[in-house]
Amino acid sequence: MNVISDSATMLRRNFRHTTRNPLTLFNAIIMPIVLMFLMVYVLGDAFSVGVNYADYATPGLIMTTICYGISPTAIAVNSDMTSGFINRLRVMRVSRAAVLNAHVIVTMLRSLAAIAFVIGVAFLMGFRPSASFAEWLGVIGIVVLTVLAIGWLTVAFGLAAKTPESAGLAAVPLMLLPFLSSAFVPAGKMGPGARQFAEYQPFTSIIETLRGLLTGAPSAGSAVRAVAWCVGLALIGYLWARASFKKRA
C-alpha cells in the first residue's frame, strides 16, 4: 500500500509540474499537427496509398504524437536524479519505485491527451475511420500499451543519461523512428535497406495494427506482433530503469 500511496503523491507532484509548464503538452500536440498539414495538404497527393491519405496517415501521426511527447519525461527523470531530489528521499519513508511509476503515469496521461487532440484535428482534415465500437476499444488498448512501453524506455533513458540535456537528446532516436516506418508511406515503396528496416522495426507493426482497426479491417497477425513488441519494449525499459535506479540512487 505504501507504493500506491507514495505513487499517488509523486503523481500529484509531477502533474503540478506539467500544469505549470504547459509547453510540454503544447510541443507534443503542435508538431504532429504541423506534420499533418504538411503530409495531407502538401505531400499527400504525391503518395499512392490506395485510400484517403488522411485515413492512412492518422495512425502514423498517433505514433508520432507519442514520440514527440517523451523528451520532457527523460529530462524530468534525469533532473530528479541530478538535482538531489532522490537523495532527499533516502531519509524519508518513501517508496523509490513510486518516483518512476509517477513519471510513467504522467507520460501516459499527457500522451493520451495529446493524441485525443490530434485525432480531433484529423477529423477536421478528412479523417473518416470505419472502426466499430469494439475496434475503437482495440485502438485504445494498443495506444495505451504503446505509451506504457515508450514511457518505460524513456524513463530508462533519463536514468542512464548524465545530464538533463543529454537525457533529452537520448529520446531523439525514438522521435525519428516513425519516419522510418510505414507511418506516411508504405514500406514497399521505400528504397532497399530502408524498406527492410521499416518492415521489421516495432513501430510499423503498431501503426499497421492501428490502421487496420481504424479502417475496420484488423489483422490478427499484425496485432499479435504489435502486442509482443509493446510487452517486450516495456519489459526492457522497466528492467533497465530499475537497474539504473538502484545503481544511481
Rank of each mutant, 00 (worst) to 15 (best):
R16M: 10
F123D: 12
S130Q: 14
V139R: 01
I62G: 15
L11K: 01
I30R: 00
P218E: 03
Y200L: 13
I206K: 03
G50S: 10
R90W: 13
F179N: 03
S181R: 04
N21K: 12
I30Y: 02
L148K: 11
P173I: 09
F184C: 01
A134I: 14
S222G: 10
D6T: 04
A170C: 01
L159R: 08
I140D: 13
G212E: 06
A114M: 05
A54Q: 05
Y41K: 13
F15R: 08
R20F: 03
N2L: 15
K162D: 13
A134T: 15
Q201S: 05
M92Y: 08
F26T: 00
A76T: 09
N52Q: 13
S166K: 11
G232H: 09
V42S: 11
Y68I: 02
L43N: 07
D80H: 02
P59E: 03
F85Y: 11
A241P: 06
T64K: 04
P72Y: 14
L174T: 08
K247N: 00
A76W: 01
A241V: 07
F203H: 11
A46C: 08
T73H: 03
G232D: 05
L100V: 07
I115K: 01
V147Q: 02
S71A: 07
Y200E: 10
P218K: 05
Y238M: 10
S205T: 12
I142V: 13
L11E: 02
V91L: 07
L239Q: 09
A122R: 00
N21H: 12
L148W: 13
G151L: 11
